[in-house]
């Protein structure tokens, strides 16, 4: 299901959901929930966006039913802890690689995915100042290291 251009801002969160459907369905569920909530604010009126959002909602309802025995889905406070732990795990992996001078595509993706998951945490309420700073740092690092590698430079 292609993300309509009006909902471009959620395409990476949606892609993260697809990438985690098998690896970690809880992460996939909350990434979809974030995409749904944000998508509705962006555009839920044009036919292509409505069609996309209705399908996304159908999928979310199906996932919630299938994962009903999982506390991270049935209790949002448990889900919040799961997503935060997962985001921090991604962040720490990339940060350790960075501090060891190991720059590669996987660590760039981990920094970027961590930043997307800090966005997803906003479905549970206002982000903590620490999470805001971690998101900013992870996003900046992902962009900076990506550009360095693209230009054949060694990140500092």
């Amino acid at each position: 299901m292609a993300v309509p251009p009006q909902l471009k801002a959620i395409q990476h969160h949606y892609r993260t959901a697809l990438e985690h459907d098998k690896r970690d369905p809880v992460v996939a569920y909350y990434c979809r929930l974030y995409a749904m909530q944000t998508g509705m604010k962006l555009d839920s009126k044009t036919p292509e966006c409505r069609k996309f959002l209705v399908k996304l909602m159908d999928h979310l309802e199906k996932m919630k039913q299938e994962l009903s025995s999982n506390e991270s889905i049935s209790q949002e406070i448990v889900g919040n802890a799961h997503i935060e732990n997962y985001a921090l795990k991604m962040f720490l992996y990339a940060d350790n690689e960075d501090r060891s001078g190991l720059f590669h595509k996987n660590m760039i993706k981990s920094f970027y995915t961590a930043s997307l998951l800090f966005d997803v945490l906003s479905v549970f309420g206002e982000l903590s100042e620490e999470n805001i700073q971690q998101r900013k740092y992870a996003r900046w690092k992902a962009t900076y290291i990506h550009n360095c590698l693209k230009n054949g430079e060694t990140p500092q």
């Binding site: 929930l33 749904m36 909530q37 839920s44 009126k45 409505r50 209705v54 909602m57 979310l60 919630k64």
Partner: peptide
């Protein structure tokens, strides 16, 4: 026609909002 179209869109939006609230056990 414009009013009818926006009214339909608004109803569908409300329906999505309700489904979202239900999904999150808010109703």
């Amino acid at each position: 026609t414009g009013t009818l179209a926006s009214s339909v869109a608004s109803t569908e939006q409300d329906e999505l909002s309700q489904r979202l609230a239900k999904l999150r056990d808010q109703i």
